[in-house]
Design a protein around this nucleic acid. Structure first.
Lengths: 191, 191
DNA sequence: TAAAAAGGAATGAACGTTCATTCTACTAAT
DNA sequence: ATTAGTAGAATGAACGTTCATTCCTTTTTA
């Protein structure tokens, strides 16, 4: 097993365990065990558990942004751009349930608040595409003239909720149901 | 201090600590300390920590349901009923931030999944008012003909998100902003 | 004064982290 | 080509801490 392999195994094992069992159900010993490495080895790659978790979150973000921006056309009408981005995001979550579960856990933890703070008040690249879309939407009078945070809530709130329900098996979202749900989200934000 | 007082103090202290610091930041010793009782005393009222937490959640539910149903008129039009209920819910959360923070923590924990499962698939009274409203809304063709879980997501998703943003201080929701936000939610679910 | 309630030190399990040791792969010397 | 030496990666038992829970003593109540 080559050097970067171990790091990768540790990250993968952490994602699996935390997504499936929550932070409580993922002690370092268990992560080490599932990764097939010694407990001490983790500390050769990550200073401590916090750093491991924060790093994992960062890596997930970097997988998501390109995924939703694929085939995104910034010159199309607001409505199409919104439906493209939000549908792509929901589909990413459905296609990568471990990523979704981990991100949810992360957001609802002490780590998450600092992160939210940065996202809403600060610079933080990545969500920029959504922010630009909403700012354009307001300027072009295609969307309701509400504070950005509220538009985010109207769009992301339902997306996260249906993704959770689907992944936990409470509902089944097929292609057309996804599309109808995202149309409903658009009704929420559109003027 | 009379007998039921101690129990009440324990529940209050648990709510405060868990809402402010999360489950991690609320060890039994600290709860006992803030409640002004001995650590062992808690176990005279609650079998263990799980029972304490579950019981606390149950009590919060019982405070919320009456609060949102006050002055609710089941014979009014769907739109008015929806705006009444959702506005009342958001206002309850804003007025009782500790309750809100605790409920959020609870939902995003092992406890929460079982609870969700019961809410969506099962009988469980309490959310009945919302369920009836949505079923009426679909029948009367005032709301989109989507699965109940998705209508719930479209309505509650944004409510929870804006409540969180307000309580964490990212936005300020005054009377009119609340009203405009709930109108936007209605646009999401209405036909 | 007997019984119930309250208190808080004691207990043991679980956890994150450390560190002395072992293993591995590569280089230098013969 | 073989051996000896070395650096750093990997290991996992051991440590100290934290926490829920228990248990025995003290206080209050009836």
């Amino acid at each position: 097993m080559s050097k970067p392999d171990k790091r990768e195994e540790i990250v993968r094992a952490s994602l699996e365990l935390i997504a499936e069992q929550g932070f409580h159900g993922a002690p370092m010993a268990m992560i080490a065990n599932r990764a097939g490495v010694g407990a001490g080895t983790i500390y050769r790659y990550f200073e401590n558990k916090d750093v491991l978790i924060t790093e994992l979150y960062r890596e997930l973000e970097e997988r998501i942004y390109p995924a939703i921006q694929e085939r995104y056309a910034a010159e199309k009408p607001i409505r199409e751009r919104f439906l493209h981005l939000s549908t792509a995001l929901l589909q990413y979550f459905i296609g990568n349930p471990l990523d979704f579960r981990f991100i949810e856990q992360f957001h609802n933890s002490p780590y998450g608040v600092a992160c939210r703070r940065g996202k809403l008040l600060g610079e933080k690249e990545g969500c920029d595409t959504f922010r630009e879309l909403f700012e354009d939407g307001i300027t072009q009078q295609a969307m309701k003239d509400l504070p950005l945070a509220i538009l985010f809530a109207l769009a992301f709130g339902p997306i996260l909720a249906v993704a959770r329900d689907h992944i936990l098996g409470f509902i089944v979202l097929d292609e057309t149901m996804i599309s109808r749900t995202m149309e409903a989200c658009w009704d929420g934000v559109r003027r």
